Computed example of a mutant assay.
Amino acid sequence: MSGFWSGLTSKLAERWLTLLVLPGAFYLATAATAHTLGWAHALDLPRLISAITTWTKNPIATTVGGQIVLLAAILTGAAAAGLAAQALASVVERVTLAPDWRTWPRPLRQVAEKQTSRRHQAWTAAHTTYHQLRAAAEAARAADSTQPPQTPAERTVARAKRYAADQKRTRIGLEEPDRPTWSSDRLHAVAVCVDRDMHLHLPIVWPYLWTVLPEPARTDLTTARTALTKATTLTAWAFLYLPLTLWWWPALPLSAGIALTGWRKTRTSTDTYAQLLEATIRLHLTTLATQLGIPHTGAPTPALGDTLTHHLHTQPPTPNTH
């Protein structure tokens, strides 16, 4: 039992140090640099070194008690900054994934609605272009028997156009946009795909499916979801660095670089999580059916999806007529 608590304590300390203290300490160092140098001496390294030397000669920093107090203050400040980033990350994630954007307050909801409409129009145009090119390719293949066949160069050009049109559509969204951001639609596309292909209502079935997943599948999903949370936390740090620009202009490119990295990591981790989520559903849906005593053989079918959705859907009580 003592070994368990010792391992748990070490893991908690490691997570506290990695997620809160280290990023927070770097933030405090940047804030101190911004306050010391300012705009006028933004890149004056000798000035910064001189200031650090002066601080280290302060009587408080030269005594054991003062060093302990100083270290405690730094750790507390770093942890506080880390907690602020974690709190802001939850807001960033909610805005990025936007599962409930239709319930947002009116100004935010209007912005999200315009963004969703813009993405929907762009996707529809790209989707139409892609299918027109596919139809033209099918017509060209059908006409090969009555007309001179396309040359290799013509087929290569047509294939490149179809690929470019498909990539343009995919950059907007894999499915018809219903949410204001690419990441939010990427996760929504999983629900759309399993509903179309297997008649499965994911919000109803997923909690039950999670309980029957093998441990490796759960671990993979948890790891992917944690990566998404870390990516949104990185974006949150960019917002915290932005106010330092008022005192130190290099904070602006630093904030922009962190934001760009967070944005790219968010898209990548969202895509990875969505792919893993859909694969897990398709691979383990029959396991859930077996656990529920629903007979089925072979790959998941729309009939199985209908059965599971109906079986797991909680029916509302009948109205009380008395």
Results as ranks from 00 to 15, higher is better:
Phe239Trp: 11
Lys265Trp: 15
Thr245Cys: 01
Trp263Cys: 07
Tyr241Ile: 04
Pro250Ala: 03
Pro207Met: 06
Leu252Met: 08
Ser269Gly: 06
Thr219Phe: 11
Ile258Asn: 08
Ala289Ser: 13
Thr211Tyr: 00
Phe239Asn: 06
Thr297Ser: 11
Gly293Ile: 00
Tyr273Gln: 02
Ile258Glu: 02
Ala236Tyr: 04
Ile294Met: 15
Tyr208Thr: 14
Lys230Gln: 12
His296Asp: 13
Ala289Asn: 00
His284Tyr: 13
Trp210Asp: 06
Ile258Gly: 00
Gln275Ser: 13
Pro295Leu: 09
Phe239Ala: 15
Ile258Gln: 02
Ile281Thr: 05
Pro253Ser: 11
Thr229His: 12
Ile281Pro: 11
Glu215Arg: 02
Trp249Glu: 03
Trp248Tyr: 04
Trp248Val: 10
Leu246Val: 13
Ala251His: 04
Asp271Gly: 13
Leu221Arg: 09
Leu252Ser: 12
Pro243Asn: 00
Leu277Pro: 03
Leu246Trp: 10
Ala236Gln: 11
Thr261Ser: 12
Pro216Ile: 08
Val205Pro: 08
Ile204Phe: 05
Pro300Arg: 01
Ala259Arg: 07
Pro250Thr: 04
Ser269Leu: 05
Ala238Ile: 10
Val212Gly: 01
Gln275Arg: 14
Ala217Phe: 09
Lys265Met: 15
Glu215Gln: 08
Val205Ile: 03
Thr280Tyr: 06
Pro216His: 15
Pro250Cys: 00
Ile204Ala: 12
Thr223Gly: 14
Ile258Leu: 14
Leu252Trp: 11
Gly293Ala: 12
Trp206Lys: 07
Gly298Val: 05
Lys265Arg: 15
Leu304Gly: 07
Leu240Ile: 07
Leu209His: 13
Pro216Cys: 10
Ala238Leu: 07
Tyr241Phe: 15
Thr270Arg: 09
Pro243Thr: 01
Ala279Asn: 14
Gly298Asp: 00
Ala303Val: 11
Trp210Leu: 12
Thr245Arg: 09
Leu213Val: 04
Ala217Val: 15
Ala259Phe: 06
Leu260Gly: 06
Ile294Arg: 15
Lys230Tyr: 06
Gly293Glu: 12
Gln275Cys: 02
Gly257Ser: 08
Thr268Lys: 14
Arg225Ser: 15
Thr223Met: 14
Ile204Cys: 11
Leu254Trp: 11
Trp206Phe: 11
Leu213His: 08
Thr235Ile: 05
Leu285Asn: 01
Pro214Glu: 05
Glu278Phe: 05
Ala259Asn: 07
Leu228Asn: 07
Pro295Asn: 09
Thr233Cys: 08
Trp206Ala: 13
Thr232Ala: 11
Thr286Gly: 03
Trp247Gly: 01
Gly262Asn: 08
Arg282Ile: 13
Asp220Phe: 06
His284Trp: 10
Trp237Ala: 00
Thr297Tyr: 01
Thr266Tyr: 07
Ser269Pro: 02
Thr272Phe: 09
Ala238Trp: 01
Pro302Glu: 09
Thr286Arg: 12
Thr222Cys: 05
Tyr241Lys: 12
Gly293Val: 07
Pro302Phe: 02
Glu278Tyr: 11
Pro216Gly: 10
Arg282Gln: 05
Trp237Asn: 09
Leu234Gln: 04
Thr229Ser: 10
Leu276Pro: 00
Ile258Trp: 10
Ala238His: 10
Thr235Asn: 05
Leu285Gly: 07
Arg264Lys: 08
Thr290Phe: 01
Leu234Met: 14
Pro253Asp: 02
Ala251Pro: 02
Thr272Asn: 04
Tyr273Asn: 02
Pro250Phe: 02
Ile281Trp: 10
Trp247Glu: 02
Trp237His: 05
Thr226Val: 01
Ala236Val: 03
Thr266Ile: 02
Thr235Gly: 15
Tyr208Asp: 15
Thr272His: 10
